[in-house]
Computed example of a mutant assay.
Amino acid sequence: MNTANLQLEGLYLALAALMGSLRRHDILSESAIDAALAEAERAANDDSEIASERSEANRQAVAFPIRLLRLANAYGTAEMPSFSELAARVGQHNHQNEREEQ
């Protein structure tokens, strides 16, 4: 696996842990974190100049970390699944959306 991918995996897990800490210390609520991440995903999708230049696979790649963090945020105080499980669930969600759009 590419070293950059491994570094990103660690970064996503670190961000998920920070989000959990913010929630446990009542600094941000689950809904506030989700709203911020949803805003980031909308911004990524709404950038028409970039979107027109990128393939669908590249647009999905940009959305992946945001979707993974939103999913991690939804776990709340429950034990966080592994990165590979979270990634698989994001992939399943993407495939479900693709089928619904067809």
Rank of each mutant, 00 (worst) to 15 (best):
S82I: 07
R54D: 07
Y12S: 02
E56M: 04
V62I: 15
A4H: 06
R59K: 12
S52A: 11
N73R: 09
N58V: 04
G20A: 07
E56D: 13
Q92M: 08
L71K: 11
L15P: 01
E41F: 05
L22T: 04
L28Q: 11
Y12I: 15
A17I: 04
L18M: 10
L69G: 04
N5P: 00
Y75Q: 03
I50N: 06
L6C: 06
A4D: 10
Q7E: 13
A51K: 08
A40V: 10
R54N: 09
Q96Y: 01
R59Y: 01
D26N: 12
G20C: 01
E101W: 06
M80L: 15
N5W: 02
V62G: 01
I50P: 00
I33Q: 08
G20M: 00
L8Y: 05
L69H: 02
Q96V: 07
I66G: 00
G76K: 02
N58K: 10
H95R: 14
A51L: 02
L86P: 04
R24N: 09
E41R: 14
D46N: 15
A32D: 15
Y75D: 00
A72M: 11
M80T: 15
E39G: 14
M1N: 05
N58E: 13
T3W: 04
L22G: 05
E100C: 01
A72N: 02
A40E: 12
A72W: 06
A4T: 11
N73F: 03
Q102S: 07
E30S: 06
E85N: 07
A17T: 14
E53S: 13
I50Q: 07
